[in-house]
Structure formats: C-alpha cells, structure tokens
C-alpha cells in the first residue's frame, strides 16, 4: 500500500480542522455560537484572515516546491533566491510611482509584485546557469546578491518617499497578515488557482526535472516550455502573496521538505501535500501571533518574524545534514 494517499487524507482532515478551528482563537477566544459583535469579528475579520493565511501559506510552499524541483536543491526557495525581494521591490515601486488601478479585480500592486518576482527568477536562473549548474554555493550566492540589491533598492525608494508611502512600504517588508480581509483574499485566489493548477498538471515534469534536465529531455519533456510554465506559476504565487502579506520567509523551504518526508518525493502526491501543509502551517503560525497578542497587550507579532524564527534553525539543520552535493 502506497503511503501517499493515506498521508494525504490525514493532511486533508488536519487542514480542514485548522480552517474551522483557527478563527475561534485570537486575542480573546470566541465560540462558534457567538452573536452580535463577536459574530462580526469571527466572520468579518478572523475568517477572511485565516483563509488568507491558508492561501498565502499554500502559495509560498508550492512555489518553494517548484523551485526545489527546478534547481534540484532543497535550499532553493522564494526567499533564498531573492524572488520575494524582487516581488517586494515591484510592489514598492508601484506604491511609490504607480497609480493604483484594478485589472479584472486584481490590484495593480499584485501585478507589479508578480512582474518583480518573474524578473528576479529569470535573473537568478540566468546567473546560475551561466556559472554552469545549480550548485548550492552558486545558487545561494546569486540569491543573496539579488536579495541584498533589491532590498537596498527598496530602502532607497523608502528614502525618497514621503511618510505615508514609506509607512506602507514598511508594511510589505514585515510580512504580516494582520490587515488581511476579503478583498485581499480575492486578490490571492486567482494567483493560487492558476499557479496551483499549473503545478498540479506538471507533476511528472517536476519529477523529471528533479532527476536531471538531460534525462528529462531524453524522456520527451519539452523542457523550455515546462521551465517557462514553472517560472510563471512560481512568480504568480510569490508575487500574489508578497503584494498582500509582504515577504514571509521560510514557509517555502520547510513545507516541501517536511512533506517529502511525509508522502515521498513523487510530485503527484507532493504537490497536494505541500499545498495542504503550507496552508496549515502559516494559518497556525498566524493564529499563534493572534493568541500571543493576548499577553503582549495587543501588539501583534508579525507572522514573518515567527516563520523566520522557526525557519532559521531549520535552514541550519538542512545545511548540517547535507550529504555530498546537497541534492534533492
């Protein structure tokens, strides 16, 4: 019996339970049968926030999974490759110079973040390819270089911005879900839908990329097209999330890695598992920050801080456990 379907079903049950129970927790506990103002908080504030957290977590985790397959490296994530910074730069540029517009219900900021993400993926891929191969040092160094460069550009934009623009940009850099509402949710869902479906269909191709590009070609994968589709899916999802919640780090690294241990490396199961786990993970982290504000007197810990606190040690653990070339 394959452990994939069984583990997936368990993950699905856990994810649904998380979605149902998380809205109840926050600064104060609100039971299901709440009425009046409490009901308003439950349905109007906490529920959209929980749904946003789940969507954002799924998107970050899925894009991390796609990067790891494409670069054949477990340390390849939107954060480490500088793609999150690229998306944040796109968003920041848009806030500073752009005129806010809405295209088919999608805010201009999201589109700008998507373009920023796409450009930085192409940059990091081109750089590592130029150096021949996706070795961990090349990949991480390119990612760090891109990340630093874009972050300083964001700081520069902040420097030349007025106070209100500057404040909004700071919000992006923190990685928070505290203002997530239904509008935000509807801005996330199309990105998740398109990106997630693309990756779901590309499960065999991602398996073959993980095995090696030469072998993928010899098995008949149209690698040029598939690479473009994976870039598109990943930048849609990173851009979509960063525009709403800022660059929340490490979800994209931890979730696929843990899921690989749970369901195996076959993307047929890994993709849905990563979707469920990433969503659940960020939802739980965000719920924790809400509950935590009960003791901190109302000041909420940005969820990005919490994921980074968990992710840093995890990253070091992966580095220490590396065998040889740190292949996937």
């Amino acid at each position: 019996m394959n452990k994939g379907p069984v583990t997936l079903s368990i993950l699905l049950v856990c994810a649904i339970a998380t979605l149902i129970l998380s809205p109840l927790f926050g600064m104060e506990f609100i039971p299901f049968h709440a009425t009046g103002q409490e009901y308003e908080i439950l349905m109007g504030i906490r529920l959209p926030r929980v749904l946003c957290a789940f969507a954002a977590g799924s998107m970050l985790a899925l894009s991390g999974m796609a990067f790891q397959a494409l670069f054949r490296n477990p340390l390849a994530t939107p954060f480490t490759l500088g793609v999150s910074s690229g998306a944040a730069l796109g968003a920041a540029l848009f806030i500073r110079f752009g005129i806010s517009f809405v295209l088919l219900g999608i805010s201009g900021t999201s589109i700008a973040a998507f373009i920023g993400a796409l450009l930085s993926i192409l940059l990091v891929y081109g750089l590592t390819k130029l150096k021949g191969g996706f070795s961990t040092p090349t990949l991480l160094l390119s990612g760090i270089a891109i990340s630093f460069f874009f972050s300083s550009l964001i700081l520069f934009i902040q420097y030349i911005s007025g106070l209100s623009h500057s404040f909004r940009i700071v919000h992006w850099m923190m990685g928070t879900l505290s203002t997530a509402d239904y509008t935000n949710l509807f801005n996330l869902l199309p990105f998740l839908g398109i990106g997630g479906l693309l990756l779901l269909f590309l499960h065999r191709e991602m398996n073959l990329f993980m095995v090696g590009e030469d072998l993928a070609i010899s098995r008949g994968v149209n690698t040029r097209l598939v690479k473009k589709l994976i870039f598109l899916a990943a930048s849609l999802m990173v851009g979509g999330v960063v525009a709403i919640c800022g660059p929340i780090g490490f979800i994209g690294m931890m979730s696929p890695h843990i899921c690989r241990l749970l369901v195996g490396a076959d993307h047929r199961y890994l993709t849905p598992a990563t979707f469920l786990f990433g969503g659940m993970f960020l939802t739980l982290c965000d719920t924790f920050t809400r509950v935590f504000s009960h003791w901190s007197g109302g000041a909420e810990l940005p969820v990005g801080v919490l994921t980074a606190l968990l992710g840093g040690p995890f990253f070091i653990l992966l580095l220490l456990n590396r065998k040889g070339g740190l292949d996937l």
């Binding site: 054949r72 398996n207 993980m210 095995v211 090696g212 098995r219 490396a265 292949d327």
Partner: peptide
C-alpha cells in the same frame, strides 16, 4: 553519482513519460 529522492519504482515510472 548524482541521486534523486524518488523510489526505484517511481523513478522507473518516469520512463513512461512519453
């Protein structure tokens, strides 16, 4: 010497791709 995290069966199944 490069490996991948697939099982033998999953890996052999990649041969069915075309």
């Amino acid at each position: 010497g490069r490996t991948n995290p697939l099982t033998v069966e999953e890996f052999v199944a990649t041969g069915r791709y075309p």
